[in-house]
Amino acid sequence: MKKNNIIISSTCVPLPVENIDTDQIIPARFLKAITREGFGENLFRDWRFDAEDNLKKNFVLNNTKYKGEILIAGRNFGCGSSREHAAWALSDYGFKAVFSSFFADIFKNNALINHLLPVIVSEKFLQKLFRTIENDPKAKVAIDIEKQTIRIEKTGEEEKFPMDPYRKMCFLKGYDDVDYLLSLKSQVLTFEKARKNDYSIV
């Protein structure tokens, strides 16, 4: 997988809704593809389009005022189904990072594996970001992955975000989990040999 820039700087798309589940991010009826590409077309499908496929004008992705590589969403983003297609859809649409004050576990993992950065921000900073973007849709936010900080560029207000050291390394160097696990083959064989109390296959 390709290496990522240490710094992303972009305008943001605000979506101040809590508990956004992966069925909203990509409805099940669009999970029939057998490749990883093209899911962006149906990102937030039923919030973006009505039953006749007309754009819903009041949804933020259809508002030309807001554009950018960063999606800012309410608490508990990505709950529900484990579908990795949700992370694929967000990336395919053009997002590089999602900010929220809380992420569901499976989504967070899926996003990291796909190098879509889930940034956990404090509830206070999240509300500040929403206000900043509302007042100025052109306001840019910079993410420094190396330093693990996000900064509102025009005011310089900054917050640190947590990131697992392994995931950070994968992100910056473009490493892949399967390659890492394949490199541990001898450990796996040793584990299997030493194994006691395994009644899983008969």
Partner: peptide, 9 residues
């Protein structure tokens, strides 16, 4: 539950 990349792992 796991994602598809983890299914591959």
């Amino acid at each position: 539950g796991i994602g598809t990349s983890e299914v591959e792992q």
